[in-house]
C-alpha cells in the first residue's frame, strides 16, 4: 500500500475511534460539568455496556436483532445502575469531589469483580448486525465501522439537542451554573444529579455496544476508554461539551494515525504526559469555551 491509501486507512480508523471516544468522553464530561465530580468508574460503565451486549446477543438468536436489542437494553440497564449508584452512594457523600473519586475507585473494583464473576475472564465476541464490505480501489473497508461513525454522530446530535434545546437540558445547565439558586427555583437537584450521572453512564454503554462487534467484550476493557476519555475531557476543557467534541475528534484521529506510525506504548506515554502538563499549565483546556 502507498502512503496515500495508508493515510486514508489511518484516517478512517481514526474517525471510528474518534466517534466512539466522543460518546464515552461526553458522558464523562456531562457528569463533571453538571455535578463537578470525576467518575473513575466511567470505564467500568463502558465495560458493563459491552459485556451486557454480549449477554443480550447470546439470548437473542438472530445477530441483527440481538445487536439492536443490545443497543436499546444495555444503555438503559447501565443508566439505571448509575442512577441507583448516585442516589444511594454519591449523594451520601454530598458529591464531595475527593471522596467521590475514592468511592468511584472502589466502585470500579466492584464492577470489575462483578463482571468477572458473572461472565468469566474470557474475551467475548459479538457479531456485527451486517457484514457489508465497501471495496475501495486500494483496500476493502468494513461498512459496519462507517455505521458506527454515523450512529455515534446521531446520538451526539441528540445529546446536543437535549442540552441546548430541551427543558431537561435547561435544568441541567441551571444546576451546573448555580446549584443553590437552582434549588431555590424548585429544581430537584438530587434528581438532576442522578439523571445526569445515568445519562453519562448510558452514553458510555452506547459507545461500548457500538464498539463490541469490532473489539471483544472483556472485564478489563474499561481501562483504555477511561484513560482516553480523561484525556479528551481535560484537553477539551473540563465540563465543556463543545470542547470535548473537538478534542475527541482531534485525539481520535491523532491516535488512529500516530499508532500506525509509532509504537503504541510510546504514543501513550506522550499522550499521558501531555494531558498532565495541560492540566498543570492550562487547566481550562486547549479548547475550553471560557477560562
Amino acid at each position: 500500500m502507498g502512503t496515500g491509501p495508508l493515510l486514508l486507512l489511518a484516517t478512517l480508523e481514526g474517525t471510528v475511534m474518534a466517534a466512539v471516544l466522543a460518546l464515552a468522553a461526553v458522558g464523562l464530561s456531562l457528569s463533571f460539568g453538571v455535578m463537578r465530580v470525576v467518575n473513575v468508574a466511567h470505564g467500568e460503565f463502558f465495560m458493563l455496556g459491552a459485556v451486557l451486549a454480549w449477554a443480550v446477543a447470546q439470548a437473542v438468536p438472530s445477530a441483527p436483532l440481538g445487536f439492536v436489542a443490545a443497543l436499546v437494553i444495555c444503555p438503559v440497564l447501565v443508566g439505571a445502575l448509575a442512577y441507583a449508584i448516585d442516589a444511594g452512594l454519591l449523594r451520601r457523600l454530598k458529591h464531595d469531589p475527593e471522596a467521590t473519586i475514592v468511592a468511584t475507585i472502589g466502585l470500579s473494583y466492584i464492577l470489575q469483580q462483578g463482571a468477572l464473576s458473572l461472565f468469566g475472564p474470557d474475551a467475548r465476541p459479538v457479531e456485527a448486525p451486517f457484514t457489508l464490505r465497501l471495496q475501495l480501489p486500494w483496500f476493502g473497508y468494513s461498512g459496519y465501522k462507517l455505521f458506527v461513525v454515523v450512529a455515534a454522530a446521531l446520538v451526539l446530535l441528540a445529546v446536543w439537542w437535549v442540552m441546548t434545546r430541551s427543558r431537561a437540558g435547561l435544568v441541567m445547565r441551571a444546576t451546573q451554573i448555580d446549584r443553590a439558586t437552582a434549588r431555590a427555583f424548585g429544581i430537584n437537584v438530587d434528581r438532576v444529579y442522578a439523571g445526569t450521572f445515568a445519562l453519562g453512564a448510558g452514553l458510555a454503554a452506547v459507545a461500548a455496544v457500538l464498539i463490541v462487534p469490532i473489539q471483544q467484550a472483556h472485564y478489563l476493557m474499561g481501562h483504555d476508554p477511561l484513560l482516553l476519555s480523561f484525556i479528551v475531557v481535560i484537553i477539551g476543557g473540563l465540563g465543556s461539551i463543545r470542547g470535548t467534541l473537538i478534542a475527541a475528534l482531534v485525539i481520535g484521529l491523532a491516535d488512529g494515525i500516530l499508532s500506525m506510525l509509532y509504537p503504541p506504548t510510546l504514543a501513550k506515554i506522550f499522550a499521558t504526559l501531555a494531558v498532565a502538563l495541560v492540566l498543570v499549565f492550562r487547566p481550562q483546556g486547549l479548547f475550553g469555551a471560557r477560562p
Binding site: L89, L93, A99, A103, I105, G106, Y109, L116, S117
Partner: peptide, 20 residues
Amino acid sequence: TELSLAVIGAALLFLVLFAP
C-alpha cells in the same frame, strides 16, 4: 474465592461512607 478486587472496592466504599 477470587474476590480480592471486590474486597478492595468494598473496603474503599465502606471507609469513605462510614468511617472517613
